[in-house]
């Protein structure tokens, strides 16, 4: 069990940071806003994983908990989803939602860093205390921010990926993007499953879900941005015709 609550979240963090580097390097070449936001989102994902690993190794730390809650629990899904909004939505929606997300994130930062905490509450209810959870926040109105950000993030990230996959499938084009988007959608759902498992008392379910999510999204991104050999051959044949 200790391995799951220590090394596993660190592994998630390492994968997330490599993924973020890969996306941001692509951003420097193409200058597309969605790549920048996905890169930032994956840095948040990595910070969340790092804080969880820190808790597993060294125990409670006030600042680490606040960083985890802000980046890992509140902001990550929304910022990743905002990237998808930039990719798919028409102007001026990306700008409007970005302003709202920016303001909301600043408010979240203020609320999380001024909240009262009680680490003893991590073992209340069904939660085992083996992993971090928002139970430790005493101040009212902080935890209620999380579903707002997460619903927005999940709908835009998973919804956008699955919508893209469906469009490509319906037209029977770009198989690699169809598969990539399905993997991204599945990866984005994995931490939500883990979080649900954690709420129902399954120890470390959240950390397993997060690791699976980081791996699936990374493979999905790689698949979506790398044409398959079959498609390349077909394209070459079409050009030859």
């Amino acid at each position: 069990m200790e391995f799951i609550t220590t090394y596993l979240p660190f592994l998630s963090a390492v994968i997330s940071f490599i993924f973020a580097y890969s996306v941001l390097r692509r951003y420097t070449q193409r200058r597309k806003n969605h790549l920048l936001l996905w890169g930032i989102g994956m840095i948040f994902y990595g910070i969340g994983g790092f804080c969880e690993g820190y808790y597993g190794f060294f125990g409670w730390n006030d600042t680490v908990f606040r960083l985890w809650y802000l980046f890992g629990a509140i902001l990550v899904a929304a910022w990743l989803g905002q990237g998808t909004v930039y990719l798919l939505a028409k102007k001026p929606w990306p700008t409007i939602t970005m302003v709202l997300l920016g303001l909301g994130s600043m408010y979240g930062l203020y609320r999380v860093f001024t909240a009262q905490l009680d680490p003893a509450l991590l073992t209340t209810s069904l939660h085992t205390g083996s992993e971090l959870s928002g139970h430790a926040i005493v101040t009212d109105g902080v935890r209620s921010l999380t579903p707002i950000f997460n619903i927005y993030g999940t709908v835009t990230l998973v919804g956008g990926a699955i919508w893209s996959a469906w469009i490509f499938f319906r037209k029977r084009v770009l198989l690699h993007r169809t598969i990539g988007n399905i993997l991204i959608a599945a990866g984005a759902l994995a931490p939500a499953f883990g979080g649900a498992g954690s709420r129902f008392g399954i120890p470390a379910a959240l950390y397993i879900g997060e690791l699976l999510g980081a791996i699936l999204m990374f493979i999905g991104f790689w698949r979506a941005t790398t044409p398959m050999k079959v498609e390349q051959t077909t394209a070459q044949l079409a050009t030859a015709d």
Partner: peptide, 25 residues
């Protein structure tokens, strides 16, 4: 146009499953 039979079967199943899961959640 069509993808290979494997992808023709698996992709709609995967998309439908994810849509059902996210709606349920």
């Amino acid at each position: 146009r069509s993808f290979s039979p494997f992808y023709e079967k698996i992709i709609p199943v995967a998309i439908t499953t994810i849509v059902i899961i996210i709606t349920g959640m």
